[in-house]
C-alpha cells in the first residue's frame, strides 16, 4: 500500500452572495417556515420530493449509490415502485416544481444548533431573508421512484449522523446504572408498612 507524497488540500467556503452566518441561516429558516403559509401543501411536498430526487441523482454518481440503485432496479421493489409512481402520476405532479435544497437546509439547521451567538441573533428577528434567485429555479426534470428512494436514503443517513454528533459530547455510556439521589420520604412512611 502506498499513497501520494503531498496530500491535496481543499477549502470549503461560502457560495458567492450567500454568506453562511447565524443571521442568514436564521433568516433562511424563518423564510422557509413563512413560505409554508403562502403555498399549498401539494406544492410544498412536491418540492420536497423533487429535492430528495435531486439528492438521489447526486448520490447515484457514487459507487455505493450506483450499487444500491442497480440492486433496487433489479429487484421487485424497483419494478413495483416504478409501477406505483407511474400509475399515480407522481412524476407529472412533481414535474416543474423547484427542488427544495433538503441537504443544505438540514446542514444549515444543524449549524444553527451549534452556533455560539444564536441567542443574540434571535433578538434581532425579524431578519429579512434572501430570495433563492436563479439557483432556486433549477429544473431537474421529473422525479423518479429510484431518485427519490436514494435521496431519502442519503438524507436519512445524514440525519442519523447529525443527531448522533449533536448528542455525542454529553451522551452517557450505554449500560450506565444511576442510583436515586435520596430515598423518597413516602417509602419509609407508616402508610406503606
Amino acid at each position: 500500500m502506498s499513497s501520494a507524497a503531498v496530500t491535496p488540500r481543499v477549502r470549503l467556503a461560502d457560495a458567492p452572495d450567500e454568506g453562511r452566518t447565524t443571521a442568514t441561516l436564521v433568516a433562511s429558516l424563518a423564510a422557509r417556515l413563512a413560505t409554508l403559509h403562502v403555498i399549498s401543501g401539494s406544492t410544498a411536498i412536491a418540492s420536497l420530493v423533487q429535492g430528495f430526487a435531486a439528492l438521489g441523482r447526486e448520490v447515484s454518481r457514487s459507487a455505493e449509490g450506483a450499487r444500491l440503485r442497480q440492486a433496487l432496479e433489479r429487484g421487485r421493489a424497483g419494478m413495483n415502485g416504478d409501477a406505483l409512481w407511474t400509475a399515480l402520476r407522481l412524476g407529472d405532479w412533481t414535474a416543474g416544481v423547484p427542488p427544495s435544497p433538503v441537504l443544505d437546509q438540514l446542514r444549515n439547521d444543524l449549524a444553527l444548533l451549534l452556533a455560539g451567538d444564536l441567542e443574540d441573533t434571535l433578538a434581532l428577528l425579524p431578519i429579512p431573508g434572501q430570495p433563492a434567485g436563479a439557483g432556486g429555479a433549477a429544473d431537474d426534470g421529473a422525479a423518479t421512484f429510484l431518485d427519490c428512494t436514494l435521496g431519502l436514503w442519503a438524507f436519512s443517513r445524514e440525519l442519523v449522523h447529525a443527531v448522533e454528533a449533536l448528542a455525542a459530547p454529553t451522551l452517557p455510556d450505554a449500560g450506565e446504572v444511576v442510583a436515586s439521589p435520596e430515598p423518597a420520604a413516602e417509602a419509609t412512611g407508616p402508610l406503606l408498612r
Binding site: S3, A4, R9, R11, V97, R107, A132, G135, G136, A137
Partner: peptide, 27 residues
C-alpha cells in the same frame, strides 16, 4: 413555477475550492 423557485427562500450553501487543482492519487 420557476419564478416561484427564484422567489423562494435561499439556503446558503458551500463551495469547494481546490488549492492546486491536482488530482487525488493512490496506488
Amino acid at each position: 413555477r420557476r419564478l416561484q423557485g427564484t422567489l423562494g427562500p435561499a439556503a446558503p450553501g458551500t463551495v469547494v475550492l481546490p488549492d492546486s487543482g491536482g488530482e487525488v492519487t493512490a496506488s
